[in-house]
Write a protein that binds this DNA or RNA. Structure first.
Lengths: 345, 345
DNA sequence: TCAAAAGTGTTATCCTTACACCCATGT
DNA sequence: ACATGGGTGTAAGGATAACACTTTTGA
């Protein structure tokens, strides 16, 4: 090996440092049942089950959290394997589709570091599963992901919370910005992300929206640890989560919404055979918008995404529906097969 | 804090382990000049400048590497800030657009771990920059990214190397797979990724293609460290890089190609004003395919992506060209503004 | 018989693609 | 004059979005 390359190698040797590093693996495990997109969450207490009211001053003491497991650096496995391992151990779920989302490494994102603990770097994953097996752990359960991000669900029209709570609060935040050019930039960003002032609502921008709410301190997660209860600003609702887990959830939702359009990931969430309404229901649940029935059906059928399985189901409430299955050959035919959302420009 | 939540916290405390963890930040820094997409690479020796011949048995002793810097866990900054910091320190470049790509954590991906060194987790970033400032470091330089991934450049038609080297080598690899169902699955995967057997070429699948070449041991990076020179399989060309850096490069290229279509990232690589040909040249350089001139122009103009700046340039070789600039307002008007490639289904 | 959900048909409109052709400069 | 690259017009085909309408079940 040449001297140059050896020098580069040497640069990688660890410097002595008082702070050690820990890798945490966090998983957003998604399943859709009866039109509800659910994620597996742990650590919540039962008395906290009722969702907080809009605008109520609140700071839950035992917030929900995403399931996670530490990485054993001496273990002889990849990050993915480690993740699958502890998820199966803790919950009994064997994950199918798994995708790395993002690595979060802000200092002090875990309060433990303040107490002299290690610096925790979290590698977040998105996992999709068909079954909602009740988790093996006592304190884990499947929860509607829109309890955490209620402004993301537009299926019943524009969510009340946007007009009643979020828009005025963000306007107030914007007027509080002194520097004019900064204010203009932020106003544009808010308009684009939240669809204010005539901008369109883009379901994929879930992370950017959460990020803005965080910067504007409209989510309890952004408030300092030691804020006295009476000085807390009002929460724009949405159930909080531990640490930055809601940010991770928003990342997962945005990524999944994007992926729907160009990869056939929906089928990871459906049984082998399904009706077109079921398929549409899952897409709607995840994207958070309603789709035009006839056009949706034509798109997936003529797009070669599904084929009739031959069977029919009578459990529809109306006329029996044909059963379909995913048509794998589409992978050969089209470069980016997925379910196009309207206005996907 | 409730007992449940506290238990969760405690699970995050570090276990005693003989193996320590190190975080490395690696950057794929991209710039496009004169139609060549370049990345900043370090650590190569001058005598290795000539590209290896197709099919030559070779194992460069001082491979090129991506620039990287270790994360100081006690430093009070985010991963992004740390990255910008050492890039500016080492190269003098101040990065504009920066995006996290992926975190690589396979054990023993760095041979140092075998020698009892720490487990290295690499967080890879994609960074775009306009200027090709000659790097401050002696052994850093800008290099055509297709020297590393020659099969990805279809601008002059289908690359020779695909038909002459890669396709036969992969066919041989496939016939060597004993289990029939596995062989069928892998054959389908190869066809889809490389566009064999009538499948279309999808520029975005750069990572999947590299991954296959790696699994088929067609890149030197996949060969065992101690392979004697005479037993080395033939390389399907493409200049190798250190560790898994070529995989990181492939990740970056695929991601960038995808992003071009729905986010206006090209403009991060162009000066403030530019001609439409320059714009097209950059898109072509990155996507690796030629685009239809007139349609491209109409798409970006009627799509509201650019506006005339008023000026013209005479350094074209033909008729002077109007200068354009990026039209920021498009962000408001369209949910996902980008440059559509042909056949984007 | 009616509600509910499945499924079919048709049309106007826009966007993509491909082709042919003209324009302004340097040599 | 001509080569070179910049720029315009137009027509065919396909995809999208919005309509109204029929069919088949359970209650």
């Amino acid at each position: 090996m040449s001297k140059v390359a050896r020098d580069n190698m040497d640069a990688r040797r660890p410097q002595p440092s008082p702070v050690t590093i820990m890798i945490g693996l966090e998983a957003v495990i998604v399943a859709v049942t009866e039109g509800v997109p659910r994620i597996l969450s742990v650590g919540h207490t039962d008395h906290a089950l009722s969702p907080p009211e809009h605008g109520v001053r609140t700071r839950p003491e035992a917030p929900d959290a995403l399931p996670f497991g530490p990485l054993d650096p001496s273990a002889d496995c990849t990050l993915d394997q480690a993740l699958r391992g502890w998820v199966s151990e803790q919950t009994g779920l064997s994950l199918g589709y798994v995708e790395q989302l993002y690595t979060f490494g802000d200092p002090y994102r875990d309060p433990l570091q303040r107490e002299g603990g290690p610096r925790v770097i979290s590698v977040a994953y998105l996992a999709l599963t068909r079954e909602c097996v009740p988790a093996r752990e006592q304190n884990a359960s499947w929860r509607d992901c829109y309890t955490y991000l209620p402004w993301e669900d537009w299926r019943e029209g524009r969510p009340q919370i946007l007009g009643h709570v979020i828009e005025p609060a963000l306007q107030q935040w914007l007027t509080g910005i002194n520097e004019p050019s900064r204010q203009r930039r932020q106003r544009e960003r808010v308009d684009i992300c939240f669809g204010f002032s005539g901008s369109a609502w883009d379901p994929e921008r879930a992370l950017e929206r959460y990020q803005i709410l965080y910067e504007a301190a409209l989510v309890p997660e952004a408030w300092p640890q030691d804020t006295p209860a009476e000085r807390l600003p009002t929460s724009p609702s949405g159930r909080p989560m531990a640490l930055d887990h809601r940010r991770i959830l928003a990342t997962a939702l945005g990524r999944l919404r994007g992926k729907l359009k160009y990869r056939p990931v929906v089928f990871e969430l459906l049984p082998d055979t399904f009706t077109l309404s079921q398929l549409q229901g899952v897409v709607e649940a995840l994207s958070g918008v309603r789709l035009h029935k006839q056009n949706f059906r034509r798109l997936v059928e003529k797009g070669g995404l599904v084929e009739e399985s031959g069977g029919t189901t009578f459990s529809t409430g109306g006329r029996p529906a044909k059963l379909f299955r995913f048509r794998r050959e589409v992978l050969r035919e089209r470069p980016a097969p997925g379910v196009r959302l309207p206005g996907a420009s």
